[in-house]
Design a binder for these strands. Structure first.
Lengths: 231, 231
DNA sequence: TTAGTAAGCTTACGTCGTAAGCCTGTCAAT
DNA sequence: ATTGACAGGCTTACGACGTAAGCTTACTAA
């Protein structure tokens, strides 16, 4: 009889199903909720069964990185290095905001999976074909990635919808006497009034810091252009 | 009798001693090695005794953040915003490289401790007194911090002395076929030959990526200058 | 003298990753 | 048709972790 049909009800466990389950747990309840036992339970299986398809938990984490990385847009040099890198940056931010746990995970382990390598290679290529020297391309790429990850990391540390933000700020206020930190309070007030306004207009929470992100992105891309043409 | 003298041999446990012990463990063996039992043992005490001085482990982690943050140079506006922020950036990088575990910790939790608040306040102040509007200052500060943390995070992910680096690169090579990732390999070769040269010249490992860091820092500071004077 | 209290200790619970080995259904070779 | 290997799941168990609950001791204030 054809092997595809006669199998028992439960779908066969595979490495891919393990990783996808882990991904959905992480998205729903955070990285800490990704537990061998929890992943197993969602698959209707015992924890130790996972080890037939995955060496250990670290391999699951590396797999998660790969899954996230493969969602990112790979830039192509066709429309110029600036447009390519801008698209890559925006895509990275979107993906990392969609998987809020991912940025810290990525930045806390070296895992040279294919998706990650492909992304790096494509980014460097765009710069090289845009006329950057090897050294320039390396510096520029490192700088851009630093900014992107750094920005998103700060963004996900403040993990609230615009309309919740003022409440959180309020709860923090006792720790922040205005006379000791006047400039900080000034900035906080600015952000909070804008958050309130955004909440009223129903602005998507992901778009909330988009202006700041784009500002920094422009500064960097323009700066790189200047630096490359000067040399 | 004076209370300071008659105490038993063991120095009294205090919150500060707990935090300093945790700090030295983290520096020596990484953040994962910071365990209630381990901290206690180093103090010649049982794990549960720590709870008389700290609420829980999270409070220890927040305490570590504060200790690290208080090592960072607080910028003063005297010599201009550019010099002030450059000094702050360099100092932050130095401190974060000295405590390689700190960057991920800081970026993965919101802990508004006084040292952190002071640093933010001072940074924003420098920008405001340099003529930036509230909004500009906020964007600029966010951008700079993003870059700094992002850069150092990548730096500590590659946690090796210059002379070890080529070996590690070699061990990674099988995963990276040159024909699939030519631009990546090109960049890696560049970095590796430079690392070898640095190792030969005995360059301090912390200084190793200093050139890239300074490059990005210049791009950002110059870009901010332009952005602020245009508006 | 005594009652209160702060600081350290003991025991124990539930959760985690995972080592070791068992059980059973499938399939290829005899 | 029989058998034997083996892949894929299960069971049990261990040591490490954070920490709740409650005990003991020793100093202090009345």
């Amino acid at each position: 009889m054809s092997r595809a049909v006669k199998k028992r009800a439960r779908a066969p466990l595979t490495r891919e199903r393990v990783l996808l389950t882990a991904l959905s747990i992480a998205d729903a309840r955070g990285l800490d909720a990704v537990t061998m036992r929890e992943v197993a339970q969602r698959l209707g299986v015992e924890a130790m069964s996972l080890y037939k398809h995955v060496a250990n938990k670290d391999e699951i984490l590396d797999g998660l990185i790969e899954l996230v990385m493969s969602e990112m847009v790979v830039p192509s040099p066709e429309s110029g290095w600036k447009a390519g890198l801008r698209a890559k940056a925006r895509s990275m931010r979107e993906v990392l905001l969609r998987h809020r746990w991912a940025a810290v995970l990525i930045e806390s382990r070296v895992s040279p999976g294919p998706a990650r390598l492909r992304l790096h290679n494509a980014g460097l290529r765009v710069l090289r074909e845009g006329g950057f020297s090897v050294e320039q391309a390396y510096s520029a790429y490192l700088m851009l990635d630093s900014y992107i990850y750094g920005f998103v990391l700060q963004e996900v540390c403040w993990p609230f919808e615009p309309e919740e933000r003022p409440d959180v700020a309020e709860s923090l206020r006792p720790a922040i006497p205005p006379d000791e930190y006047p400039y900080l309070v000034e900035a906080m007030n600015f952000v909070m009034t804008r958050s309130l306004e955004q909440a009223r207009r129903g602005v998507n929470s992901a778009a909330s810091y988009a202006a700041e992100f784009e500002f920094g992105l422009d500064v960097i891309l323009d700066g790189l252009e200047r630096a490359s043409s000067v040399s």
